[in-house]
Amino acid sequence: MVGFITDIENMDGIAYYARPDLTLGAGFGTAISTQGGPKVQEALKKFGSANVTDVVATSGENLKARYILHAVGPRFQEEDSEEKLRKTMLNALRKAEEYKLRRIAFPAMGAGFYGIPLEVCARVTMGAVREFLEKAAELEEVVFCLRDSRELNVFQEHLQKMRG
């Protein structure tokens, strides 16, 4: 779908592509801190920092979603970006299972500002979701909430390939 991830309804959790220092920062971080309230950042402080591929969960506080999965993915062409992105996705999905979330939403993980090519993002993240859902116990639905038709077209093309 095309939409704004903090505004979509009926999600148990949403993913946020987090920084290693777990500071919410700009972009979707602005939306989370503005709409979710200061307690989200406060909750993140107890984790200190995190390594790439780590995922930590906090309450969504005032957001529509109950939980936020803060997933620290690879950034700016760092080494082994593709494999690290796959691990980050799988860790986020595991965290969702651990919290017994049934419906979760992801943005285009790492694409855009952090420079993961959109095609790589679609292939790796959708591939990880398919791999994980086959054995998931709690998770029923994963939504990719994208920002524009440019992102949507690439994800749809890849979905077609997966089906084909």
Partner: peptide, 9 residues
């Protein structure tokens, strides 16, 4: 900050 805001928001 500004780039990330424009990409995401």
């Amino acid at each position: 900050i500004v780039s990330k805001d424009q990409w995401e928001v």
